[in-house]
């Protein structure tokens, strides 16, 4: 049963450390259901790390993450993920359709083959992102934007309620950007919650109705209209808190973290 009144994502006291140096520090956040949430912040602010830590791809030093009030492992099928395009080898011998069908593997289950029924589902998803004509192409023959759309389609076949997208707009053509944002709007209308790591500040107000401004910690969060203001931007992008940095470096050296 899909219950959208339950908070789709709640993070409490999340701290993540790489090599004992904290990358994310004490993140507290709750996402309102049915919104497009943009995650913005400078390079190295821990945006991708946040998503990976939420999805348990990297270990957390401390903290708790609940999705729809439950642990992630219990609601995996309701959570979709679009990783960064660079994270895979695009020379891999699979077609666009094969990649999209991977989103169904969880529903297909162990040992069973990908039957024509599932391929049909994958084709429909490809059609949604305007890539049906390229279904049988080997993935290295697609342009960057087309590859991104294939990844998006792979998340769509899962029909999840909560999506995480890691920089889907990075290095894509205008057509892809438009296709992606149309899909995002559709998802929102269907009452789903989407988190998008985003770089382009010019389009923030246009694309997202909720913002999470991140720089190692949550600088500001809230409806875009309220928080997308200069003082918050200065806090987010205006460099780190030097004293805190020094202390965290000292912690790393002494080995307190992790």
């Amino acid at each position: 049963m899909k219950n959208n009144t339950i908070i789709p994502l709640a993070i409490r006291d999340l701290t993540v450390a790489y090599h004992r140096k904290p990358v994310l520090w004490d993140i507290d956040f709750e996402a309102p259901a049915g919104s497009l949430v943009g995650i913005i912040g400078p390079n190295g602010a821990g945006k991708s790390t946040l998503i990976k830590a939420i999805l348990e791809l990297i270990p957390r030093a401390s903290g708790e993450v609940l999705m729809f009030g439950k642990n992630y492992s219990l609601v995996r099928q309701r959570v979709g993920y679009v990783p960064q395009r660079e994270s895979v080898d695009w020379d891999f011998p699979v077609s666009a359709l094969d990649v999209v069908a991977m989103g169904c593997y969880g529903q297909i289950g162990w040992f069973r083959r990908v039957t024509s029924k599932w391929r049909k589902v994958a084709r429909e998803a490809l059609e949604r992102v305007g890539m049906l004509d390229y279904a049988d192409r080997q993935i290295s023959q697609l342009s960057g934007g087309q590859q991104q759309r294939v990844f998006l389609a792979r998340a769509l076949v899962q029909d999840a309620d909560l999506y995480f997208m890691d920089e889907p707009f990075a290095g894509v053509d205008a057509a892809t950007e438009k296709a992606i944002i149309t899909i995002l709007q559709e998802l929102k209308k269907a009452g789903k919650t989407v988190f998008v790591v985003h770089h382009d500040l010019q389009t923030v107000t246009e694309y997202f109705d909720y913002l999470l401004m991140l720089n190692m910690r949550v600088v500001a969060e809230g409806p875009t209209k309220e928080v997308f203001r200069e003082e918050n931007l200065v806090k987010t992008y205006g460099g780190r808190l030097t004293l805190l940095d020094e202390a965290l470096e000292a912690m790393r050296k002494r080995g307190t973290m992790g």
Partner: peptide, 9 residues
Amino acid sequence: FDSCFAATQ
């Protein structure tokens, strides 16, 4: 192909 995605699934 994509072990990270596999893990999230």
